[in-house]
Amino acid sequence: MAAFPDPQWFAALGRLMEAEGELFRRLGYAEVRFVIKVIGENDDPVAPLVGLEFDGYRLARAVQLDDTAAFDPDFVICGRRPVWDRMLAEIARGGRPELRHTLSSLALVGDELWLESTDQLREDKFFRFNQTLQEFFNLSARLSR
């Protein structure tokens, strides 16, 4: 099975998202396009960039990117490999990350995860759809079982 951050790994979460249906409908739709960037110790990406697009209640796209600008994301979520791994391990154990290790909490302090965007208004979509994004990642608990 594909591993994070392979696009196929996200596609598997997308299928779980559609199977969940009601949970995500209750959260409301999300229309947002963003990139996942996994960074190594020397600040270089250690995995190909992945572009994700939510179109309503489903993951419409999960693609490997050569050109971030062409994907025109609302924001890029950047994080070091161990931070992503820790979050996913906590999700695998408990269904959700520990309190201060959610996407929003990590991005708030900004030294473990951080956001990049050309426009604050577009970056704010990270907050507008945050519950959906977190629940999406939380579905990974089912992948690891």
Binding site: L99, R100, T102, S104, S105, L108, V109, D124, K125, F127, R128, F129, N130, Q131, Q134
Partner: peptide, 27 residues
């Protein structure tokens, strides 16, 4: 967003995260 971060319980975290979503629409 700080509230979501500093929340001492999951209840507090859920409250702040949902309010954060609403507030960002207003902004």
């Amino acid at each position: 967003r700080q509230g979501e971060f500093l929340a001492p319980t999951r209840v507090d975290q859920e409250i702040f995260r949902r309010c954060m979503q609403d507030e960002s629409r207003h902004v």
